[in-house]
Amino acid sequence: MLLMILLTLLVGIGFYAVLSKTLLKAAIGLGAVSAALTVLLFSMDSPLAAVFELSVCAGLITVIFVSVISMTKAAAPRDQKEAEPNHYLKYLPLLATGAIVFCAMRYWLGDAPVAQATVTAGVDVRHALWDLRGTDVFAQLAVLFSGVSGVIVLFKELKHDE
């Protein structure tokens, strides 16, 4: 039951974050989605993942976003008035199909005859991270670097031009 509520909430806040008009509202929406996800992870019995999610995404990222956005000026009023108002209702068919698909999948896949292997619980995180999945960490490092270069490429010139 809790699961259902949290999932619906997650999806609803997600829609809000994507469809909102101002950048600030979108960033706050992102933070709220992460918070909902944290609660979900807690309720599914994985506290470590929940903590990481909360601290990194809901915390760090939202703070950075909000602080950067607050450093910008709002767009001129002229642009705002001409923006087309979002009709949330036009996404109703999408929601309806999503709900149908969800129910169908639950019906078909809900029985789960596949034996679910229990992952050995209680393995030390450090051991898991560095020994078992060392290559993943290395790759994540590279992803980090590529993200940073991406930001530099896309935004660095802006400062010099202005």
């Binding site: 790759a139 590279a142 992803v143 590529s146 270069s149 991406g150 896309l154």
Partner: peptide, 9 residues
């Protein structure tokens, strides 16, 4: 993911 992000940029 590495490849994808690099490609985007």
């Amino acid at each position: 993911e590495i490849v994808s992000v690099c490609s985007f940029v």
